[in-house]
Design a protein around this nucleic acid. Structure first.
Lengths: 365, 365
DNA sequence: GTGAAAGCGCTAACAT
DNA sequence: ATGTTAGCGCTTTCAC
């Protein structure tokens, strides 16, 4: 009667087939599959051989329906194309997979519409939990959607809903460490290049930059804070303009992996050496920051640690029945000091032209 | 009876509740939800308002079980951390989402064990189709797992099972275009840096390199083909060694995004200018290749096009009932000529030291 | 320890 | 056009 047009699929094997083949009831077969305690040895063996003979695989969808749990975690990030998010997804996937969960990834691209759609997808697909970093943390509809999620959620690097769990990167002390490092070296003209100041992360970093400078008795020069129009645009020109200023900034902080390559290029084109002519600190620690000549000092958030925190918070609720109020854990970025920062040049008045004649980059130490 | 310990979840709303609330049968409610034809207007309206009043959301798991289809596509790639795969996933997700599918991403990390596990997960989770690029194309177990998948599959840039659909990057002509370009400029000492030669892609590229050179009447010098031990290791030293050879190679082909940054760095450290002293071609066209000074000539596979092909092949089977034999479509990489290649320096005998005194990089054109 | 049967939420056949 | 109902594959109570 209910036969959908003679499926060409060669009759998926169900637990019912296993039971039949082993000459037991489906209940017993199920108990074996799930490793229940009360099973006689011979029955277990018969079922197990039936399973391998028939090549039976439990149907996860049916199980999910029955159990009201899918062992799936939804993960909404801005864009895995960004290496930082790519690595994070990776770390999350590793840990969750080890715990028996599968991760459903969705790129929100910072689009409100898309974020709503994704959140809705997560809801109707019965995720056991979600990990999200909404680009539009301030949007009322997104906020509403997040708050009305009926599964455990961990919010990453956004400050949205106090009743939920959060993992927050502690940008302010992070940036303070950078400014302290630079100020300690003697820098007084420090420039900052950021991708876009929307959103908590950039706001906090700029805040940390200002307060860090203030703590050193310096004042942030607004003209030295450059914000890129979009995450996609090249920062080459912006950095170039910065380097053309007089007095030239003696140190540059570049907040974004994409920005770093452009900045390095701009510095080279201006014939400047790192760190002799200009000091440089980057965010995010891409692999080549380590292998660059000279190795670049970076402010790094430990992705592994962040993933660890996120997963632990989430599984507390998903798997261990935690019921408490929203918790918030901070991950402090660490300053990895390498060779791209030094004292500012004595003669800031010297002309760039003169320098262009020197070897382009300092030698590997 | 079957009440799982008084779920704290506030009684998920089902279609049954909607029907009750609207005073109709579940069947009718279902018809409205699915936009069936035979529904009276007033009934439809009543159901619709019940839906929004109750905030009903169809349970996708139940629907999947009933329909024997999950509207989910499994996607197994080596590692989204690699920008090429990141972009690809992105493009795939866009298209599939538009078609009403959700993508389940899994990073295989080239581990056999993991690939088998992922494939198995895909199978038991009832994917409607899968897109895979197994790192271990030659492994018997992986091969077996791929061939015995009982859902439509598209295999990406691997040549595995003729009965399945494939999208293959046409590396040989791609590399030929590169060598032709370089040879046309007059280069005779062309070096190649590859990340690892395992796997079809690199094998084919090297093959294309050799045959391309041969077609120009040149012979590939094996000493100029450098293979990195792993995708993760820095190629700085390898490139450095290459540049220290005499006669120095006049052109460098770098097959990997990670390798490019290291190569640029090594070239700069040697005090060499691009393209005056050494020409450079890269693979994969990362964003900064365009914004670099000088802009880097790259061999690019059009990710959008590849994704388009993959999705179209897959949906033919998943959604349009295609039953035919395995199809294979090729995507030809295109050479994007920018400013990083020029004729080899006349005086190859001149010393690097001399050159180091010149400005480090050519000006932006 | 094992079997029988209910039912997770939904759709589609069938009956009206 | 609408209602009734079987059953997707599985787990788990309940009775033995």
């Amino acid at each position: 009667m209910n036969r959908m047009k003679a499926g060409p699929r060669p009759q998926r094997i169900g637990i019912r087939d296993v039971a039949l083949h082993a000459g037991v009831s489906v209940g017993s077969a199920s108990r074996v599959v799930n490793g229940a305690a009360n099973v006689a040895d011979d029955l277990r063996e018969r079922v197990q051989s039936a399973i391998s003979e028939l090549g039976y695989r439990p149907n996860h969808v049916a199980r999910s329906l029955r159990l009201q749990a899918s062992r799936t975690i939804g993960c909404m990030l801005t864009d895995v194309t960004n290496p930082l998010y790519g690595k994070l997804f990776h770390a999350l996937e590793d840990r969750l997979r080890a715990a028996g969960y599968v991760v459903l990834l969705a790129n929100s691209l910072n689009s409100v519409e898309r974020e709503l759609e994704i959140l809705s997808t997560f809801a109707s697909r019965g995720m056991d939990g979600v990990i999200i970093a909404p680009g539009n943390e301030r949007d009322a509809a997104v906020l509403q959607a997040v708050r009305s999620l009926d599964v455990p959620a961990v919010i990453l690097d956004r400050d949205m809903a106090p009743e939920r769990d959060h993992v927050l990167y502690d940008h302010v002390p992070g940036m303070r460490a950078v400014t302290a490092h630079l100020a300690g070296l003697g820098h007084r003209h420090v420039a900052l290049v950021v991708s876009r100041a929307l959103g908590r992360p950039m706001r906090r970093r700029i805040e940390g930059f200002r307060s860090g400078l203030a703590a050193q008795g310096l004042r942030a020069d607004d003209a030295l804070i450059v914000e890129m129009p979009s995450a996609m645009s090249s920062s080459f020109d912006a950095v170039s303009r910065l380097l053309a200023r007089r007095p030239r900034p003696t140190a540059l902080i570049v907040l974004g992996t994409n920005l770093l390559t452009d900045a390095l290029n701009a510095i080279a084109v201006h014939g400047l050496r790192i760190p002799d002519d200009v000091s440089l600190v980057s965010l995010g620690d891409p692999d080549f920051a380590r292998s660059y000549t000279p190795p670049i000092t970076t402010l790094r958030v430990d992705v592994q640690q962040a993933a660890e925190r996120v997963v632990s918070l989430l599984l507390d609720r998903v798997a261990h029945g935690e019921r408490g109020p929203g918790r918030s854990v901070k991950v402090v970025p660490e300053l990895i000091v390498r060779d791209s920062c030094a004292a500012p040049p004595r003669a800031e008045r010297a002309r760039a032209r003169t320098r262009a004649a020197k070897p382009p980059v300092t030698a590997r130490r």
